[in-house]
Design a protein around this nucleic acid. Structure first.
Lengths: 181, 181
DNA sequence: TTCCGCATGTAATGGGTTACATGATTAG
DNA sequence: CTAATCATGTAACCCATTACATGCGGAA
């Protein structure tokens, strides 16, 4: 669907073009490998969701979404609810019992550092891109902002979690003030 | 690692036990299927990371993490940085070009509704669990709170994004007040 | 003419899901 | 006695990653 969607956004692109688009605009959202992409292009073509509109030197093939492809894409966007995803980060947090209270606290401190640098990265990206006022760039903009908000939330959460773990009372027992922020 | 970690937390559990633990405590973080779990138990045993400590009726096998298993777990927790995950939700948002401005706006509205009910679900979970004051329950508690904060953040973000998409000016051009919240 | 970028593919392996398949215990 | 629960496994299939493999075109 990521490939189909990008082809819909950028008609007459080659696999190679799409790869660069993946790297430039979806690297933080949906990374794709070269191997996988070419495989998908073949499948999408077989399924009639995209078609080759031109061929050029070096076996270059330009793709475009068919009407059926657009329909499938719209159906996926509107009707298929995104099911909850796995969360490797929270899996780790949940398993911090293995490290004991001190290890858990250290883990959360390092997490704050890591997230901060990730946030810096996103800030830099935001400032270096030349955002156009069209829908596509606005969507890219709001997606990027989502990443920034996740980072900020995570930093605040980690601090709160550290306090919570240090607190000798049971969770939900109402001894801290910032428990339900 | 999820299986190994749960065995470390709950020694002398069977695959069946672990399955219920997955459902009860990790359903929203790292769902596991029965098929996969039994396969992993076999591999972990072969690799010497867990061992069978007892057998019972119906082929019941109790597992326990070996010292090697604990070491691998700690290494994974401390040294392996969780790489950024794919985000199907933001992929969809990025591809909302296909639906046009109105469709995108509608999509975000529906998203708010969906997230709100997810948040209700988490609130209910939080209130129905009997949280103990030990490290394990505290970690469960903070993980659950993470989910709640993601939901709240997402609701606010979606509202902001709707305003942003409705705004005729370019992103980053500085016409709205809530652009850098 | 030589090197970088364009351009496409295949193979091996592992993770994950769905469905299939089986059978023993125990509580009512 | 019978149904729910306990309890374990296999097979087929898809998605994804890493590594392997190839070769043309254009610019310096």
């Amino acid at each position: 669907m990521a490939a189909l969607g990008l082809i819909a956004q950028h008609p007459d692109s080659t696999g190679y073009d799409l790869l660069r688009i993946f790297e430039l605009s979806l690297a933080n959202v949906w990374p794709a490998t070269q191997s996988q992409l070419y495989g998908e292009l073949g499948k999408l073509t077989t399924d009639g969701l995209i078609e080759v509109t031109a061929t050029g030197p070096r076996g270059r093939k330009e793709y475009r979404a068919t009407e059926a492809g657009h329909a499938v894409l719209r159906h996926w966007l509107v009707d298929e609810k995104p099911e909850p995803q796995r969360n490797p980060l929270m899996l780790k947090v949940f398993l911090l019992t293995e490290l004991g209270p001190d290890g858990a606290d250290r883990y959360l401190s390092e997490m704050v550092d890591g997230v901060r640098s990730a946030l810096d990265e996103l800030d830099r990206l935001r400032d270096h891109v030349d955002w156009e006022p069209d829908l596509q760039d606005k969507l890219g903009w709001v997606v990027l902002e989502w990443g920034r908000r996740v980072c900020r939330m995570q930093i605040e959460w980690a601090r709160w979690a550290q306090a919570e773990l240090a607190d000798p009372t049971a969770p939900n027992s109402g001894s801290t003030l910032d428990r339900r922020p």
